[in-house]
Amino acid sequence: MDSKSNAALKTTGPEAVAEATPAPSVSAPETPRPAANTPTATKRPSPTGLWFRTTGSRYLVRVVALIAAVVLWQLASDNGFNVYINFDNIPAPTAVGSALMTELGGQEFYLHIMHSLQRVAIAYGLAVVIGVVLGVAMGRSKWAEDIILPYIELLRPIPAVAWIPLAILMLPTEQASIVFITFLGALFPVVLNTIHGVEQTNSVLIRAARSLGASNRAILWHVVLPGAMPSIVAGLAIGMGVAWFSLLAGEIISGQYGIGYYTWNSYTLIQYPQIIIGMLTIGGLGTLCTLLIRKACNPLLKWQVKGGQS
């Protein structure tokens, strides 16, 4: 075979066919374009909008409810509503607001508030310390419960007003007697709720901690107290409200300063708007103190699963 036939075979072999066949073109996949009415991304709500959806809307409902009550109060006072409740002698919110502006312009009103806050702080602090200690002791020891609980149950039903004569006879000053009455009012809710919380602690957790070698002190601090904390916090909140109630009774009888004395003195002087100012001040201060107690105790209840409301 000559050189021409060899060249012909080379040009007609598989290599030549491969060279003659064009390589297929590879194109990048096309990205589908979104439709004109399809949102490209979901916008995240702003922190303000998120707060309003979760919490702010609830506060708005509460404020609207209070405003509605004030409007109804104004209408009842203006029209002399007298169906079982007589609004003829009750000052309208406008009169109360005018008297409040006058009181806020002086110094005596603030002096009454400061005296009441000081008494509540001293009495409530003592009630929390003594009440929690006694409640834990009675919840953990049957002997302590049998010895202390009869005194608690015997003294608890006695109203704060009934303690006033004895407090004046026992204690050297009026300040001490008012603090003592306020202390008794706050003590009993704290004690009883602490006992309930300690007794309701899951015994399985206590046995598990003891089987792992935990001491009684470690079980108390790391098992019993955390488990009883929801009941203790409830007792602290209730005790704060009862403390203000008891403070009012003590200041009415034996006080010279304080918001309770201010309210009672306004009644004796026939200053009806000042009576309502004193009542609303007591309610506002009690609500604020209770809110502070709950906020301060929230870090102790992070483990608790919240629920129950729809």
Rank of each mutant, 00 (worst) to 15 (best):
S116P: 14
S27R: 12
E30A: 02
L50N: 11
N216R: 00
N6D: 15
P29V: 10
A36W: 00
V83Q: 15
G260L: 12
N202F: 11
M1V: 03
P34D: 01
A8W: 11
V191N: 01
N193Q: 03
L50G: 11
C289M: 10
I85M: 09
Q200H: 11
E103S: 11
F87Y: 10
K295F: 11
Y84H: 07
A209K: 07
R217W: 15
I178Y: 04
D2A: 12
L104S: 00
E30P: 03
V96S: 07
G258T: 03
V133I: 09
F245A: 05
T194D: 08
G80F: 11
V61C: 03
V223T: 06
V305G: 09
V223G: 09
A35K: 13
G250Y: 13
E103H: 14
S211N: 13
G197A: 01
F183I: 07
M279I: 15
F87P: 03
I195T: 07
G185W: 03
L171T: 04
L192D: 00
A243Y: 09
R217K: 10
G80L: 12
M170G: 02
Y151W: 03
F109L: 09
P29E: 15
V71L: 08
I293R: 09
T55K: 08
Y272A: 15
N265F: 14
R119K: 05
L212F: 10
P34I: 08
I90R: 07
L192G: 04
L60I: 15
A214F: 14
A35V: 13
L291F: 04
I122Y: 08
L104D: 08
L75G: 07
L166G: 07
F87R: 04
V61H: 13
G105V: 10
Q256R: 06
P32A: 15
I164C: 06
L166F: 01
Q304S: 15
R33Q: 09
G105I: 03
A121D: 04
P150H: 14
G49W: 10
T182A: 00
I168V: 04
E174F: 11
R207M: 02
Y110R: 01
E153D: 01
D2P: 00
G97D: 05
T268I: 14
A249Y: 03
L149Q: 02
S254K: 12
Q175M: 08
T182Y: 06
Q175F: 05
Y267N: 04
L212T: 01
G308V: 01
G258S: 09
V132Q: 04
G197K: 02
I282A: 13
F245H: 12
I168L: 12
S203K: 01
I270D: 06
L292S: 12
A144I: 15
P34M: 13
M138Q: 10
V305M: 07
A8L: 12
Y151P: 01
L291W: 14
V132C: 02
L126T: 13
W163Y: 01
S77C: 12
A68S: 02
R156V: 14
